[in-house]
């Protein structure tokens, strides 16, 4: 019995807790990508860099607060910085919309052209970010590191395995819950949100019924900016900020959005968690897990790992390919074109 509990605790520590946090970050990212897709109808390759930009602003704000002696110990200062980061990221996206995207929107160009434009924006932002903050890794998580340490957990429960929950992980999950609820409330309950959905469903009909497209697009970019800033900051808080990682992060985020059905907000959130959990389940070394569960003589010799951790991006890719082969519209019926 104790062995089973130990095995479950092991999974909780190495798979469930980290995947909840990582999945939340992916979910926020995928929600941003899917909103751009639903309203502006293109795959935004610059989304990773937009997240990175938000994180950079958070870091600068944190440095500013720290030098002014402002802190909310035991919580990380990042929580204070996030609103500032949201504001500035939204400003950036509105400027980009005005100077870059709006022109193509008016021309009604093909989605492929839009993608290349977003690649240009990505390039530009990547240069801007690296110019300002450099390329080295930055850790900006301050405050209390753990909510519960593995050793404390072991003491309380008397098990051989422990669960540790880092503050950043808990904050990630809570902030995601709040933000996702807010976005869904906005989309489903407010007049503006409804007009956004109407615009997404049928642009021409929405225009006929008096919805102003400029307004819908501006609101979308504001939502996307907020989501990108929060997602980026939470990811950086959890794993440390390295500018080039955000380019690689685009792949699991796209995979999450497509698995959920592109343009479908609920699907994007669920897709984020699907990706995070499958990455963890497939790259976890089950040796200790089986040692607990199986009789001693059956205990495995190797690591019992399906795929080494370096290939976690391959997991999201394989999931993406399976979904494309079996159900190209995604789990929750997104748009097809």
């Amino acid at each position: 019995m104790i062995d089973i509990l130990n095995a479950i605790t092991l999974l909780a520590n190495y798979i469930i807790v980290p995947s909840l946090a990582y999945g939340s970050q992916l979910a926020l990212g995928a929600l941003g990508i899917t909103l751009v897709y639903a309203v502006l109808r293109f795959s935004n390759f610059a989304h990773g860099e937009m997240m990175s930009f938000g994180t950079m602003i958070s870091i600068f704000t944190i440095w500013l607060f720290q030098s002014a002696g402002i802190s909310i110990h035991p919580l990380p200062t990042a929580l204070l910085a996030i609103p500032v980061s949201i504001m500035i990221t939204i400003m950036l996206l509105l400027i980009l919309d005005r100077t870059v995207f709006r022109y193509y929107q008016a021309q009604r160009v093909q989605p492929v052209t839009f993608m290349i434009v977003s690649v240009g924006v990505m390039f530009f932002l990547a240069g801007l970010i690296r110019f300002f903050i450099g390329t080295s890794k930055k850790n900006f998580a301050d405050g209390e590191r753990f909510i519960i340490k593995a050793s404390e957990f072991k003491q309380i429960t008397g098990l051989a395995e422990g669960v540790s929950i880092r503050t950043t992980q808990a904050i990630t999950v809570i902030v995601t819950l709040v933000l996702v609820t807010a976005v869904f409330w906005f989309l489903n309950k407010t007049r503006t949100g409804k007009s956004m959905r109407a615009f997404s469903d049928n642009e021409d009909l929405a225009l006929l019924s008096g919805i102003k497209p400029e307004r819908v697009i501006i609101i979308t970019w504001m939502l996307v900016g907020a989501l990108a800033a929060v997602a980026g900051t939470l990811y950086g808080l959890d794993k440390g900020y390295k500018p080039f990682v955000y380019l690689q992060l685009v792949l699991p985020i796209f995979a999450a959005a497509i698995i959920g059905g592109v343009g479908n907000p609920i699907g994007a959130v669920i897709g984020g968690y699907v990706i995070a959990f499958s990455e963890a389940f497939i790259t976890f070394a089950y040796k200790r897990f089986f040692t607990y569960l199986l009789p001693e003589e059956w205990a495995p010799e190797g690591l019992v790992q399906m795929l080494s951790t370096e290939y976690k991006f391959a997991v999201s890719f394989v999931l993406l390919v399976i979904v494309l082969l079996v159900r190209p519209t995604g789990l929750f019926r997104g748009k097809t074109l």
Binding site: P111, M115, Q248, L251, I258, V262, F317, L324, P328
Partner: peptide, 15 residues
């Protein structure tokens, strides 16, 4: 859809 090719090629190149 046209952007699936872009995303899939992005993925395979990273892998």
């Amino acid at each position: 859809r046209s952007d699936y090719l872009a995303i899939a090629t992005l993925g395979i190149s990273e892998i």
